[in-house]
Each structure stands twice: as C-alpha cells, then as structure tokens.
Computed example of a mutant assay.
Amino acid sequence: MNNYLDTTVDVYKQAALKPDVGLCCTTTPIWQLPELQIPKIMQEMNYGCGSTVHPRDLVNSPKVLYVGVGGGMEVLQFAYFSRQKGGVIGVDLVEEMLTACDKNLLQAEKENAWFQKEFVELRRGTALDLPVEESSIDVAAQNCLFNIFTKEDLKLALAEMYRVLKPFGRLVLSDPITENRMPDSLRNDSRLRALCLSGSLSMKEYLQMITDAGFGTVEVRAKRPYRILAPSQFDTEEMILLDSIEVCAIKDPMPADGPCIFTGKTAIYFGEEEYFDDQKGHVLMNNQPLAVCDKTANAFHILGRKDIYVSESTYFYDGGGCC
C-alpha cells in the first residue's frame, strides 16, 4: 500500500475510535426530511466537505453505492430514498470505521421508525478495487475521499465507479479543489493529504479527470469556500484557498464533440424574432433563460451575436437546459 494510503487508514481508524468533529467541515446544511432523525454520533462523524445526497438523483428506489462510509450519515440519508434490503452498499477500507458505522446504524434504527438496518449492506474494500458487480449501481457517491488520492489512484477510482454504474447511472462527488499553486512540500505530505488539505486539484483538472473516465455529462452543483492554508500555519509562501465542490457525473454516451459540462451558465436571446435556433439542437425562446453547458456557451460566444446574452459560470446547476 502507498505511504499516503497507510497514513489515511491510520487517520480514519483513529477518527472511528474517537469521533473527531473538526476533521472535516461540511459546507452544506444537513438535509431536513420528514421523519428522518440523524443520530448525534453520525453528525459528529460526518467526515465530508459537502453533500452527495440530492433527491432528484434518488427516484424509484435506486441501488446506491457509497464509498468511504464515515459515521454513516449519508448512508442513512440514501437509505431514506431506497427502502429495500441491500438498497445501499457502503464500502470502506478501515475495519474500525465499518464497525462504528454498523453501530451507528443500529442507533438510527432506534430513532427512525421507517429505517431497517438491512436497508444498508456494509462491505470492506477499497475504491481502487470495488467489491461490487459491473453495471449494478444506479447512484454512486463519495464525499471528500477522492481528494486524498494521487492522480494515478484517482484515475483508478474513477474507472471503478464508471465500471459499477449502470448506463446513465450517476456518480455524485464532493471534494476540495484549489486554483492556487500547491507546493510540493504540502502535496507530498501524507498526513495533510489524508486530512483532505493538500491533494486538491484545480477545477479544470478535476473535471478533466472525470470526463477522461468516460462520463459524457458533468454537472457542477455547488462551489463554496472551504479552508485556508495560510503561510503562518503551513509550508507555503502564499495563502491557498480551498473550495468545496459538489459534482454529478452521468454515465451517458460521450458526444462526438466532447463532454457536456454544466458550470451554471445561462443564455438569453433578446432579438427581433420569436426564437433563435442554432440548428444544433439548441432553441432559445425570446427573453427566456436557458441553462447551457460550457461547450454551447462557447459556441454562442463564437457566433458573436449582439442579441444573445451568455452569463458567466455561477457554479450552481440544478438540471434542465440545453442538453
């Protein structure tokens, strides 16, 4: 096992044995859903930087895979939408974390009349070699785990997620990213990497690795400030800002002209006609906003029309639009 993975296992073994509330800091409020009570211990062991639970992904009792179970909070939330035996598979490499999660699920069963522990199946395994059958999962998710991996291992982890997803299945991710230069001294620090602080890629690199894995559509659903690596505290000459990003990647066919990546851009046509049709499948009704992927937004820019407004990225996309 790589040195940084050894360190990661040790960090999360200790976090399983003794909850570490400050280990991560989620930037997304915990879902408030009818009759869902999340045990306090699960909240204390919420070792993520955002949320991967989005109700619009979770229709028709999907088969869900969650990698890196932590205290079980998101596993429980996924089970809320997939109330069937083994509806949620939780995978973790750290035996102590699986034990803690199992114990916490028993507590959740006591606090939630609707929840049965059999809704969740816990398996020991690694994201680099998932103990899951090919094309068997509707929704796969990970929260602040892939950020720990080196680029080589991240490529393997994404390939594994792609393998186990059904056609048009969804991979939902939450990870820190940074647009600042990460010094090698920090990037190569195995403990800082395990703490999700120094493995961050730029957004462009992060999204490129996802599309290189074969995902034809990628949605950037949220981006928020997350952590600061300051020169007074870390081995860096300049302040490094980490953002928390939430992304959904869909296993649909790769378009001939490249992936559709939605970063929250909108196009509005305000010309003299009733609508504008680019003859490529995109119709803009007069003065009606349309969410567009970055590829389409760029094509509209190239047209140079004065009657089409294209917004900058908001890094918030919640469905609909051009593709």
Rank of each mutant, 00 (worst) to 15 (best):
N2K: 13
Y4L: 11
L5N: 10
L5C: 12
L5A: 13
L5R: 13
L5H: 09
T7E: 08
T7F: 05
T8N: 10
D10K: 07
K13C: 12
P19F: 09
P19W: 05
D20P: 01
D20T: 13
D20S: 13
V21M: 13
V21N: 07
L23H: 03
C25L: 11
T26C: 11
P29K: 01
W31I: 10
Q32Y: 00
L33T: 05
E35K: 06
E35I: 02
I38K: 05
P39S: 13
E44N: 11
M45G: 00
M45H: 00
N46S: 14
G50H: 05
S51N: 07
V53H: 00
V64A: 15
L65M: 06
L65A: 05
V69I: 08
V69W: 01
V69K: 04
G70Y: 08
G72D: 01
G72R: 00
M73R: 06
F81C: 01
S82G: 14
R83D: 05
Q84D: 13
L93T: 04
V94R: 02
E96L: 02
L98K: 02
L98V: 04
K103N: 12
A108Q: 04
E111F: 00
E111Q: 04
N112F: 04
A113W: 05
W114R: 05
W114A: 13
F115C: 09
F119M: 03
A127I: 01
L128T: 07
L128A: 11
D129I: 12
E133V: 15
S135I: 02
I137W: 02
D138V: 03
V139D: 07
A140R: 02
N143K: 02
L154H: 07
L156E: 08
L156T: 14
L158R: 05
L158N: 07
L158D: 01
A159H: 05
A159V: 10
M161P: 00
V164N: 09
G169E: 14
R170Q: 11
R170F: 03
R170Y: 12
P176L: 02
P183C: 07
D184H: 03
D184E: 07
S185N: 04
L192K: 12
C196F: 08
G199R: 04
E205I: 13
Y206L: 15
Q208Y: 03
I210K: 04
F215E: 09
F215K: 11
T217L: 06
V220I: 14
K223L: 03
K223T: 00
R224S: 11
P225I: 08
P225Q: 11
A230D: 10
A230N: 06
T236A: 13
E238D: 11
M239N: 04
I240G: 00
I240S: 01
L241K: 11
S244Q: 04
S244L: 05
S244A: 13
A249P: 08
I250E: 07
K251F: 06
P255C: 14
A256R: 11
D257I: 05
D257W: 06
G258T: 07
I261G: 00
F262Q: 00
A267C: 07
G271Y: 11
F276C: 10
D277G: 13
D277V: 12
A291N: 12
K295H: 14
A297Y: 04
F300E: 06
I302L: 15
L303P: 00
R305V: 08
D307H: 05
I308E: 10
V310R: 01
S311K: 01
S313Q: 06
T314E: 03
D318K: 09
G320D: 12
G321I: 01
